[in-house]
């Protein structure tokens, strides 16, 4: 979902109490938020509880949604608080660094120059990154967060966020480079066809 689509949904919820918009938001954010909460709690079922508690609060405070600048940033911060509160209530067991607990893969590509097996290789490389680096990459690429937002969410400096993003980019570029000659051929042929 694009930022605009999310904004439209939050407005429907705030102004029209739209339940189906609320459900759509939940479906969209569920996997990412559970993976995020799970990096702290290390219990998938409890992480799901945490995420649904966040959504209960979002609905209760739905009137506030229109004032929120970046909903993705907001809901990740709310989830971080909810997860840490849960850990606190459990007297601090199982705390880990905030990160990405699930493994990622690319959805079936629609139109891409990059071969399917290369996409798989890149996803594999992303999954081998440290969980915090992987999370930073996903928050920026998939959730459209800015360096500043990621920095406040994870309690890091902007410089660190930038460095982590560069590390992820470096891995991606390395794999793409391996097959660069093939792509060059592909490109040349395309040009000829045109």
């Amino acid at each position: 979902m694009t930022t605009e689509e999310i904004k439209a949904l939050t407005e429907l919820i705030a102004e029209r109490n739209d339940h189906s918009a609320f459900d759509q938001l939940f479906r969209h954010y569920l996997p990412g938020l559970v993976s995020f909460a799970n990096s702290v709690i290390n219990d998938r079922h409890q992480s799901e509880e945490v995420v649904s508690d966040v959504f209960v609060k979002i609905w209760e405070n739905r009137k506030t949604l229109t004032a929120i600048r970046n909903f993705s940033h907001y809901i990740y911060i709310a989830t971080r608080h909810q997860a840490l509160n849960y850990i606190k209530s459990r007297k601090g067991t199982g705390f880990e660094e905030l990160g990405e607990s699930g493994s990622l893969s690319f959805k079936t590509p629609e139109k891409s120059m990059i071969a399917k097996e290369n996409l798989q290789k890149i996803a594999g490389a992303i999954n081998e990154l440290p969980s915090r680096c992987r999370l930073i990459f996903r928050l920026i690429k998939e959730e459209g967060l800015k360096y500043q937002d990621v920095a406040t969410l994870l309690g890091l400096s902007i410089k660190t966020v930038e460095n982590q993003m560069t590390i992820a980019m470096k891995r991606i570029v390395e794999i793409l480079e391996e097959s660069l000659p093939e792509y060059a051929m592909y490109y040349a042929q395309k040009k000829v066809q045109k």
């Binding site: 699930g102 493994s103 990622l104 893969s105 959805k107 891409s112 990059i114 996903r138 991606i172 060059a184």
Partner: peptide, 23 residues
């Protein structure tokens, strides 16, 4: 060569990520 690489990166960033063991 770098220009080609950059367009591949653009291409890659258009591909959406999902969870392996998603819901």
């Amino acid at each position: 060569e770098d220009a080609l690489l950059a367009s591949l990166v653009d291409d890659l960033f258009r591909q959406r990520l999902d969870y392996e063991n998603g819901y």
